[in-house]
């Protein structure tokens, strides 16, 4: 209960005793000791564009990030989702939108909200099972409501020191350090598979006529298999979630150059979108960039 009071107990702001209007303090007047220096914080950016050649935007994104401080504080948490819809008659945009909702809702309810409960909750579903359930729910929602529609979906749930990734399709999650960029997800695309098997060289895969063909996506029947894994958060590094409208057009090294030369994640996202459009913008573009500070 004390915990509750601490959070919600302050009903009214204290009335200034002399009735004088409050004004911001001159920062120079505030003694430095009054400010509890909070450690480096997670910073996020996001951007989206329909692109040059498309008339509809079928991509969806969802970003939620939480911080707390104090004794017994909640761990830092975040939820980041990118989905790239496909299918005619608006079904792509509906598929990606309802998938993002279904996944976010399930993860929010059963992980983040549970963290906030005052009594410790026992018997929680393991995070990886939860991630799988979330994506399967999205899949059933699309199968039932959007026949003919489908979507990729890449979701990252950040809790404390770990991120748990759920992934279907060919949107990507990257980790970017100062000097390196690597995808942590595996495209569920035909050409990627042929490339893994040594049947195609990467440069052939880039121009392959079937490079958009997926072998797994949300909304393509009930036997959905989802890639789920957990990693420690990448300290002093960026995590990028993006649709193929970005990675299919802007080379990895260029993405790295833009991210590491930008002041903020938001600036980086804006510049990434610009770069994709400058390169022709053949598809919808979505980017979500998260910076995790050093420990």
């Amino acid at each position: 209960m004390d915990f509750f009071k601490r959070i919600f107990g302050r009903k009214k702001p204290p009335v200034p005793p002399d009735g004088v209007k409050t004004a911001p303090l001159d920062p120079m007047m505030v003694a430095p000791t009054m400010i509890t220096p909070l450690q480096g914080r997670i910073r996020i950016g996001m951007a989206q564009s329909t692109g040059v050649e498309r008339t509809h935007n079928e991509d969806s994104l969802f970003v939620l990030q939480g911080n707390a401080a104090g004794l017994e504080a909640l761990p830092e948490f975040g939820l980041y989702v990118v989905a790239d819809g496909m299918g005619g008659h608006r079904s792509g945009e509906v598929a990606s939108a309802i998938s993002v909702r279904a996944v976010s809702r399930r993860l929010f309810e059963d992980s983040i909200l549970q963290l906030m409960s005052i009594d410790p909750v026992t018997d929680l579903v393991p995070l990886q099972d939860l991630m799988r359930m979330a994506l399967e729910e999205a899949n059933m929602a699309v199968v039932e409501r959007v026949p003919g529609g489908g979507t990729t979906l890449t979701a990252v749930l950040h809790l404390g020191h770990q991120i748990t990734v759920g992934h279907v399709g060919d949107s990507r999650a990257y980790i970017l350090t100062d000097s390196e960029v690597h995808a942590i997800t595996r495209d569920h695309s035909l050409v990627k598979r042929l490339e893994e098997l040594g049947q195609l060289r990467p440069e052939e895969a880039e121009v392959h006529p079937q490079r958009n063909v997926l072998y797994r996506a949300i909304g393509q029947g009930a036997n959905l298999e989802v890639d789920v894994f957990t990693l420690p958060i990448p300290r002093d590094s960026h995590m990028l979630l993006c649709s193929d409208g970005l990675w299919g057009v802007v080379p990895d090294q260029e993405i790295l150059r833009i991210v590491s030369s930008s002041e903020t994640p938001q600036e980086a996202c804006d510049r990434l979108i610009d770069a994709a459009n400058a390169a022709g913008g053949p598809d919808n573009i979505t980017a979500v960039l998260v910076y995790f500070p050093p420990e």
């Binding site: 393991p126 995070l127 990886q128 099972d129 404390g160 957990t230």
Partner: peptide, 23 residues
């Protein structure tokens, strides 16, 4: 991540900071 087994037939993976079950 912590890993241990139990007499309940299960091998657990828990996040060490907060004890959340990962799988």
């Amino acid at each position: 991540i912590l890993y241990f087994g139990s007499m309940d037939w299960t091998l657990y993976a828990l996040e060490a900071e907060g004890g959340w079950q990962i799988w």
